[in-house]
Nucleic acid binder design. Structure first.
Lengths: 218, 218
DNA sequence: AATTACTTGCACACCAATGTGCAAGTTTCG
DNA sequence: CGAAACTTGCACATTGGTGTGCAAGTAATT
């Protein structure tokens, strides 16, 4: 169960979506459907509308009362996820940290929205037009690349890979770690992942640990 | 275009598959379908039979002449991939290398069957029963875990993550690197990836490079 | 308590993909 | 060359998921 449901201002008229529910129970339903759908779809992007509805404890017909169609549901989820991701990136783009700290912060911040990130990846290239996915996902990469470039110039990170490649490699690593947590193989609130990322970027393990510690204990 | 098509002994009677073609052109067709299907399916696991057939320059009906159904085609691909993967792992399981070399060799060997590995992942949990995917994929993980455990005992690798987690993390990293190559962002025949993996495992960059060099120049 | 908002349970139309049957072609091998 | 092996192009049945209409239920807000 994902217990977020932070009271959002409720986007007014995203044209195409059904009118926002007025009765409380209905609102709750809508939210629950959304949450369950996210969980279900990151596990299996091809989950049936029916499966999702059932998993949310509703009948298919009811889901259609909230979302005009599969696409609408997907869009709702994707939008939310994209928003969260964007937020995380902004939060990470703090003042001019030294590169190591920047990368650590980047990871930490991304980790917090891990489930949305995962969802976005799972939804992936399919479900929508071509550039769509890249537009949402690349900002994260871009940021990583930026940091790596900066750090490499300062001789902080390894130069064993082209920055773009390293960045996407780090993305893959991060995703796998996220999966480990999701599978219950591991518990981590971020520091572990951040350390791993720094190390993968070529930072000395001891120093990586220090950097992360200094950030998380602050 | 994947130009492999090494003349294989032609598996005799895998019960369920249509009788092997007798006419040369037919054989070629079958092989091409298989190759194209692999390419197509790793890009998009939900590719239609029709899409695959067309991409292979054949009509749908013809594909069915070679493979009784979608499942059969998938199985053929998966089997081939699984075989390649198994082979790679055996090749990697050389004599008792020191852990670093073992991990490097493991990566190098896996890299050579990268496209099959990718395919296997892309086919993923879907398409077949539950345990199926794990049975084929876990050997690689298992091997990695084994090596990591050994190396950690010797103090060669970092202990920033539980071995299982590190192993799967490395898997993710490897996959992302594979993707980079596949997307044309990068060229590498293995050494680069192996180095990156070693570094991610906590080996000192300089030493990682040496290890890999010693293996690839041999 | 009455109204109104939602939910549910069918039934149905629709579509895209799968898998088959059959009657032509076309090619390859003996 | 001629038979057998393949390919092709329909046509057709089947299936599984989607999306909609409507009538009857249940619950929340006034």
């Amino acid at each position: 169960m994902t217990r977020d449901a932070a009271a959002e201002p409720e986007e007014s008229p995203p044209p195409g979506a059904a009118a926002p529910p007025r009765r409380s129970h209905a609102r709750a339903n809508r939210a629950r459907i959304l949450a369950v759908a996210r969980r279900e779809l990151s596990a299996n992007p091809e989950a049936t509308i029916d499966e999702i509805a059932r998993a949310a404890g509703v009948v298919r017909r009811t889901l259609y009362a909230h979302f005009p169609g599969r696409t609408a549901l997907l869009e709702a989820i994707a939008d939310e996820a994209a928003g969260a991701l964007r937020g995380a990136l902004e939060a990470a783009a703090g003042p001019a940290d030294p590169p190591e700290q920047a990368l650590a912060r980047h990871t930490l911040e991304l980790w917090r929205v891990g489930d949305r990130y995962r969802t976005l990846i799972a939804l992936g290239h399919k479900s929508f037009g071509d550039g769509w996915f890249e537009d949402l996902t690349e900002p994260a990469l871009r940021n990583a690349v930026e940091i790596l470039r900066r750090g490499r110039a300062a001789g902080v990170f390894g130069d064993h890979l082209p920055v773009e490649v390293l960045a996407s490699g780090i993305g893959g690593l991060l995703l796998a770690l996220l999966q480990s947590v999701n599978a219950g193989r591991w518990q981590d609130t971020g520091p572990g992942a951040a350390t791993a990322v720094l190390i993968a970027a070529g930072v000395d393990p001891a120093r990586a640990r220090e950097t992360v510690t200094s950030l998380t204990s602050a």
